[in-house]
């Protein structure tokens, strides 16, 4: 089934120079395996096509059940020269949580909420 990430994961984002970075965290190990498979560089790049000019990097961390996602060229050259309301990229994580992926409905958080 199609599932928005917010139902199965949590996330925080921040900035460094012109890069926005997002930590995406599965609530459980089964979900982490799905995130690792479904949240690809290509899909993330497409989701943020209007935001990030540069390439997308993804670092999986099995020990933290997390993906570290880095969006290059996403902050108009950096927070202090950006015209954006969200100049620090704090809401990039919220935008990621709206991305939909294919996930089995047996995942713990999906089964629990029905």
């Amino acid at each position: 089934m199609r599932v928005p990430l917010w139902r199965i994961a949590h996330a925080r984002s921040g900035d460094k120079a012109d890069r926005a970075d997002i930590g995406l965290f599965a609530y459980d190990a089964a979900t982490y395996a799905v995130l690792k498979r479904e949240v690809t560089r290509e899909r993330v790049a497409a989701h943020f096509a209007a935001l990030a000019r540069g390439p997308v990097e993804i670092y999986p961390l099995d020990n933290l059940l997390a993906l570290k996602i880095v969006l290059d060229g996403a902050l108009e050259g950096g927070a202090a020269r950006s015209l954006r309301m969200d100049n620090l990229g704090k809401n990039v994580a919220a935008a990621l949580l709206r991305m939909e992926i294919e996930a089995p409905e047996t995942l713990p958080r999906l089964a629990a909420s029905g």
Partner: peptide, 9 residues
């Protein structure tokens, strides 16, 4: 873990 990965590349 949210803080651990915060602003880390």
């Amino acid at each position: 873990r949210q803080q651990l990965l915060y602003e880390v590349h």
